[in-house]
């Protein structure tokens, strides 16, 4: 499979070859594939989503079964030993973590890191005020707040994540821009719309129907949009 250039760019200056790696929030396996392609000795691809876990197994894990361990677990309580991971990646993870969850995950990632561990955090700057996708993300947050009592998305500025991890003892090696602008394609817009539809299904009719009507209006109005920035921060744990 083709590893996205965002992933190869984020990993290209990291010592992946021969390393034990943790991909925190494995998604559909793009970063796991990038780590394997860069020569990782072992990749723990951790996700709390059963569908994602099986997608990663099918797309990526089966190609290098001896080097891939797809682990279905909560990142706030990793089933990994302390001081056991050389390289940690969190590619597009933080924006799906609420602030309290992010703090707990940062503590866990720090616990499993060996001294000298490398950490790559890739995420999105908050979309600019004039971004049409902001309205979609706002609706997504509103619906998940109503259905689950949590926001779906929080876009953390790079400076904020740098300070958060600095508080856990990490030092920053470099920061670079991965995407500018960020291409929110029809496929991305549709994937976010699907989250709204599935969360809204749990709401009472009188709440759900107007929200879904607004969703369809937004999806049609947005189409696709290239706006905002995706960044990559590479950090290191002392030792």
């Amino acid at each position: 499979m083709d590893v996205p250039t965002t992933v190869t760019t984020a990993l290209e200056d990291q010592p992946i070859d021969g390393a034990t790696c943790l991909e925190a929030g494995a998604g559909v396996g793009n970063t796991t594939a990038g780590l394997l392609a860069a020569g990782a000795a072992r990749v723990y691809a951790v996700t709390n989503d059963a569908d994602h876990a099986s997608t990663v197994r099918d797309r990526v894990g089966c190609r290098a079964p001896d080097r891939t361990a797809v682990v279905e677990a909560d990142l706030r309580a990793l089933p990994l030993a302390a001081n056991s991971v050389d390289v940690i990646t969190a590619h597009g993870l933080c924006n799906v973590l609420t602030p309290p969850a992010l703090e707990t995950v940062a503590t866990e990632l720090t616990r499993v890191a060996v001294p000298g561990c490398h950490l790559v955090v890739d995420d999105y700057e908050p979309p600019p005020a004039d971004a049409a996708v902001r309205e979609l993300f706002a609706l997504e947050n509103a619906v998940t707040e109503l259905a689950d009592g949590r926001p779906a998305l929080t876009f953390y500025p790079a400076t904020m994540l740098r300070r958060l991890f600095a508080g856990h003892g990490w030092t920053v090696d470099r920061e670079r821009t991965l995407l500018d602008p960020v291409p929110w394609t029809r496929a991305h817009v549709e994937a976010h719309a699907e989250v709204v539809r599935s969360e809204a299904a749990e709401l009472p009719d009188e709440l759900r129907d107007p929200l879904l009507a607004e969703l369809e209006r937004l999806v049609a109005a947005i189409g696709e949009e290239s706006i905002g920035e995706m960044y990559s921060i590479a950090m290191r744990f002392p030792g």
């Binding site: 083709d2 996205p4 250039t5 965002t6 998604g27 559909v28 793009n30 569908d51 994602h52 997608t55 590619h91 597009g92 799906v96 991965l178 995407l179 500018d180 602008p181 960020v182 291409p183 394609t185 029809r186 496929a187 991305h188 549709e190 994937a191 976010h192 699907e194 989250v195 696709e224 290239s226 995706m230």
Partner: peptide, 19 residues
């Protein structure tokens, strides 16, 4: 950004929220 935008246009991965 351009590579990424076109990558998805050609083969949209289901449930792909991120780049």
């Amino acid at each position: 950004s351009l590579i990424e935008r076109l990558r998805h246009e050609e083969s949209p991965v289901p449930e792909q929220l991120h780049h």
